[in-house]
Amino acid sequence: MEPILFAVLAAVALVAAVATIAWRNPLRSAFSLIVCLFALAGMFVTLFAHFLAAMQILVYAGAIMVLFVFVIMLLDLSGHGSELKLRILPVLGSLAVLAVAGKFAKTVLSTHPLVTDVPPAVPDSFGTVPGVAELLLGQFLLPFELVSLLLLVAVVGAVVVARRRFWREGK
């Protein structure tokens, strides 16, 4: 049951992701992205990462998508055609890449089995809030703190790039 559910959700996520970049209308892109994010949350559930699934819906499908939609509406971008456009050159390019990748994959697959029979061990607390908290504040404390530095850089960088002018400009 779970593998089938996972496959269906993965297919939905892929189609929605392609639709996100293929729609000409930004609002439709945004809604495709919502579908993609929900499908991802469903995949997390099938992988027993319930906490992550809840966070995915709250943060991404909820808060961030609202921001996206607000920005799109404020900028009034919605009037630029609604057709689904897949141009020919990118498609040909992807096919060429797939052909090369397929050739590589064939070489490798001919010498190696696809599925190794030892799945990585998963502790009981996997995916629960205590389990995640223990990882975040234990083994991954340093990366966790690093993320705050990363966010600081991102925020200051965004402000600097988006600011209309520096103090002495335009005086």
Binding site: L146, V153, E169
Partner: peptide, 24 residues
């Protein structure tokens, strides 16, 4: 690998901002 990636992204974001800072 996780810390490596975070370090790399911190570096990259800061350098993107440096490159974009000259507005004129």
């Amino acid at each position: 690998l996780f810390s490596l990636f975070l370090g790399l992204e911190t570096m990259a974001l800061a350098v993107y901002a440096l490159v974009a800072m000259r507005r004129t």
